[in-house]
Amino acid sequence: MADFIRPELRAFVWRWREVLIAGGLCLLGLWWLWQGIGIVRWLGGVAIIVGLAWGWAAVQRVRFAQDGEGPGVVQIRERRLAYFGPLDGGVMDMDDVNMLELDPTTYPAPSWILTGMGGQRIAIPVNAVGAEDLFDVFAALPDIQTGTVLDVLSHTPDVRVTVWSRTRPLLH
């Protein structure tokens, strides 16, 4: 039964599954809005709004995700980011991150460079296993523009680009 669907189609559906489910929720909401009576119509409107918001967020996650076949593994536990690579790695609390950069010159793939308060740096390839979870971590950084992150990732520049940096409070 598993051979019934081509592997390319299965991979496509798996990658876009959240968007497809959100679209299904919107269609259900439209049907309730059109055919329902009373409170069911209101629930249909709510389902459409939730489906649209969920679909928008899911499309952003799909745009961020890479193939996941790069070197190393990314783990995120309780706002602590850990990268275990073949040559280097590191652990950093997300509250300590001061700067996020994209370096396209790293080999074999472009890397996210996270710089901490103490100057420590972690370079995470964009296609490392588990790197798709970084989108939610990056979105939680204060005042970050997720559209900027996606634009920099989709139009990979020639030099290192600062995507986000923390504003430093004045001490006096």
Rank of each mutant, 00 (worst) to 15 (best):
M94N: 09
E18K: 15
Q66E: 06
F4M: 09
A58R: 05
G29S: 00
L27S: 08
L43Q: 08
R160F: 06
L20M: 08
T167F: 12
L134F: 09
L20G: 06
R166L: 14
A2N: 15
V149L: 07
E69N: 08
D151M: 07
R121E: 03
T156C: 09
N127K: 04
Q66H: 07
G55D: 00
D3H: 13
Q66Y: 08
T167A: 15
A58N: 05
G70A: 11
T156K: 07
L20K: 06
H155P: 05
L150C: 15
H172D: 13
P169A: 11
T156W: 11
V59R: 05
V126W: 01
G72P: 01
M1W: 12
G23R: 02
L25P: 02
V91Y: 04
G119C: 05
P71T: 11
W56T: 12
I124M: 01
W42N: 04
G90E: 00
M99V: 12
V137R: 07
E8Q: 15
V126M: 09
A109S: 12
G36E: 01
D158L: 01
L141H: 06
G51L: 03
F12D: 09
Y107V: 11
L20Q: 03
R121A: 08
D88R: 15
V40E: 00
L52N: 03
I5C: 09
F84G: 03
G119F: 10
G130D: 00
A131N: 00
R10Y: 15
V46Y: 04
P104Q: 14
T162L: 11
T115D: 00
A53H: 12
L28A: 13
Q120T: 10
